[in-house]
């Protein structure tokens, strides 16, 4: 079995940037992605704070970055990583369809998933559809009444978007009753780190984030973390990308 210098878990902006830095430093790099490259940002149609590309869509941006990483020599494979094990001289990475990979170092870049609606609220929603992406599903409710659950920045964003499509957009907290006449429920109650596959190998805080400072070093030597799944204050594209560069260069130092 081929052993890679660096295996990266997650092909969001953090993982793909790490791949670019890793291959440019002459390392063999494999990126493992559970779904499709891009992560959270593929739902966004209007990015205004990625320097140099005003109003780029998430899909456009990710396609370019993926092509760039591959042109430089990074490999991408579609695997849902379930477990990472430290061995005598490196790491073994296991997928949920019996895949197995070997690496000298690992970069964790699994990002975050949307926080799901509570069971109680799911019951309240009943047969009504529950969506976690207004830009995906909003247009299915043209001229209809919908409700947005949540009050943060992303909820505000969803409300603004849906107001342009739906006849009425209600807004409630995650512990309030869903209005009777809402035909669909849009959920924006925060995100939770997708760190389950790493919990046996690195330190994770009470909220599920992988503990590391700006140097992206985890509690396990040879394992680095990049992007939204790391403990940090600002979770954005540029900071995820920045982490990717730092984590890759720290991995390169570790491999030297």
């Amino acid at each position: 079995m081929k052993e890679y210098d660096i295996v990266i878990v997650g092909a969001g902006i953090a993982g793909l940037t790490a791949a670019i830095y890793g291959v440019r430093a002459g390392k063999t790099v494999l990126v493992l992605e559970a779904q499709v490259e891009g992560g959270q940002i593929i739902n966004t149609i209007n990015i205004e704070n990625w320097p140099g590309n005003m109003r780029v869509t998430g899909v456009e941006l990710i396609r370019k970055i993926k092509a760039q990483a591959e042109e430089l020599g990074a490999e991408i494979d579609y695997v849902n990583v379930e477990k990472i094990v430290k061995t005598k001289d490196g790491f073994e990475i296991f997928g949920d369809m019996d895949e197995k990979f070997k690496a000298k170092s690992v970069i964790l870049a699994m990002g975050t998933d949307p926080r799901k609606l509570s069971d109680e609220m799911m019951k309240d929603a009943g047969k009504r559809p529950v969506s976690y992406c207004a830009t995906c599903d909003g247009a299915l409710y043209k001229g209809k009444k919908v409700v947005v659950v949540g009050h943060g920045n992303s909820a505000e964003h969803e409300i603004k978007y849906l107001k342009g499509i739906c006849s009425e957009v209600y807004n409630i907290h995650h512990d309030e009753k869903i209005p009777e006449d809402a035909e669909a429920v849009f959920v924006a109650i925060g995100r939770i780190p997708a760190t389950e596959c790493a919990k046996e190998i690195v330190e994770i805080d009470a909220r599920g984030y992988i503990v590391a400072g700006e140097d992206c070093h985890t509690s396990c030597t040879g394992v680095f973390v990049a992007g939204d799944c790391r403990t940090k204050d600002l979770r954005q594209l540029v900071t995820a990308s920045s982490d990717g560069a730092v984590a890759a260069m720290e991995a390169v130092k570790y491999l030297a």
Binding site: V36, G38, I42, N43, T57, G58, C133, T135, C136, A139
Partner: peptide, 11 residues
């Protein structure tokens, strides 16, 4: 699918 849906384009 729909044209305005990012995940659909990725799929």
């Amino acid at each position: 699918y729909a044209d305005w849906c990012g995940p659909c384009q990725m799929l």
